[in-house]
Amino acid sequence: MSLLRRLGGLLLVAAVLAAGQAVADSPPDRNHQLRPFAVSGDFGTDVVGRDFAVRAVAVRCAAQLKIGDAIMDTQGVWVVVKLRLSARTEPSHISYAAVRDASGRIYQTTDRFDQLLVTGGRSIQPGLPVEGEIAIEVPAASAGDLTLLVASTFVDHRMDSMAEIPLPISDVTAVLANPAPTEVLAPRSAA
């Protein structure tokens, strides 16, 4: 075998190894590969995930919340979403709810008061849906283009379903001009 042919073989092996490394290094990375399965649906319809279904029934904005006797202000705006949650074939908990704005920033439900409906504190049985409201603080400038995200997983959402529902919010300036406090509906059976 001539020297040139041997050199060609070595170069070919090196090229294959380099190509393999390039494929391994190229996006999407591991976290992106294992990202949640997005299940999209319209506002007002049931969006069905692996072990739950969620319907965004109503949405409103407020400058203040009234939780018990406490009034809660915000530097942005409160987005209050009424949800109807159902379990599919076995008891389920919803442990994550958030909104994503147009630039991809995520805002989770506030922890300034208990929101058991979406923090894993409410067990939902099949056939026995639960209704209630959740509240999320967002910058006023982001409120016009929000997508609701709901999952039954708490922190690690990889390889599981996540519902995505666009929220029909138009103008929040009127809400901010008239900061009347609004109450947040506690979870209740909707069977």
Binding site: E90, R122, S123, S189
Partner: peptide
């Protein structure tokens, strides 16, 4: 303990309801 219905759905004891 879980309960099973005729469709195979399962239920927890002492549900929130």
């Amino acid at each position: 303990i879980l309960l099973e219905d005729e469709a195979g759905n399962r239920y927890d004891v002492n549900a929130e309801e």
